[in-house]
């Protein structure tokens, strides 16, 4: 698992991909910081991450689109699947590489938190909770992107489908309000990853939300292993 993770992580930063992501993330992060904190005059990072979460949906597929699609196209998956490793190790290795590459960008935003703490009264507990929630939310999107990448050979299709899936899930909360059936409406609200994030912004580390995100991650990583396994049998 570690070997796959290391290789994948390195390949982000030996190619343009990692830098494209970092540039986009840092520009948007700076913009959000300027608009919410400097111009808005608040030390809270709730608004900052509220904006970043929407942008993340568009940035994250950059990191996930090629995870498996490229392996399949280049036939390098033959090396991985004939090595004495379990498929889940390959899937987790790639997932962790994408999460840690994303975390590089997120780590830079700690500078903003430090600046806010020095120059204002940063609500520490709320900020830690938001960071945890934001990372979980992003890991959740990465797991969905990993799964989508495993079902196609084309990076472009992988990215577009991930955007599409995330756009639908983004509007699940709004959609739930339009549904007349109360049970269905609640169910839609319950499965919306975006609405789950609101607990974290309120400074509450809700165990239910944490378990929800981890469950989504596990489900999609499991589905990815099943896709790879199934292809062997087809």
């Amino acid at each position: 698992m570690l070997a796959v993770c290391k290789r994948e992580w390195k390949s982000y930063f030996t190619s343009m991909l990692g830098y494209v992501y970092l540039t986009l993330f840092l520009i948007l992060g700076a913009l959000m910081f300027f608009l919410n904190n400097l111009q808005g005059g608040t030390a809270s990072m709730t608004g900052f991450f509220g904006g970043m979460i929407s942008w993340s949906i568009f940035i994250l597929p950059i990191l996930t689109m090629r995870l498996f699609a490229e392996e399949r196209r280049q036939k390098t998956e033959q090396l991985l699947l004939t090595a004495p490793v379990d498929i889940w190790e390959i899937v987790c290795g790639k997932f962790l590489a994408a999460v840690s590459a994303y975390a590089v960008g997120v780590a830079v935003t700690i500078v903003y938190a430090v600046l806010l703490a020095i120059n204002g009264s940063l609500p520490i507990a709320e900020t830690i909770s938001i960071y945890i929630g934001y990372l979980l939310f992003c890991a959740c999107i990465i797991s969905i992107g990993t799964f989508v990448s495993s079902v196609t050979e084309s990076q472009v299709i992988a990215a577009i489908v991930t955007y599409a899936v995330m756009l639908v899930t983004m509007f699940l909360g709004n959609l739930s309000q339009l549904v007349p059936n109360e049970i269905l409406s609640k169910a839609l609200m319950w499965i919306s990853p975006l609405d789950r994030f609101s607990d974290f912004t309120a400074g509450v580390l809700n165990a239910g939300a944490v378990i929800y995100y981890i469950s989504i991650i596990v489900i999609f990583l499991f589905l990815t292993t099943r896709v790879l396994e199934k292809r062997r049998w087809s």
Partner: peptide, 24 residues
């Protein structure tokens, strides 16, 4: 395999190190 499974963005030595680790 018929088409060697090579990560073309890697340097030869790094690639072999990766395969070494991958194969445990």
């Amino acid at each position: 395999p018929e088409q060697p499974p090579l990560y073309t963005d890697m340097v030869v030595l790094d690639y072999l190190r990766f395969v070494y680790d991958l194969k445990k």
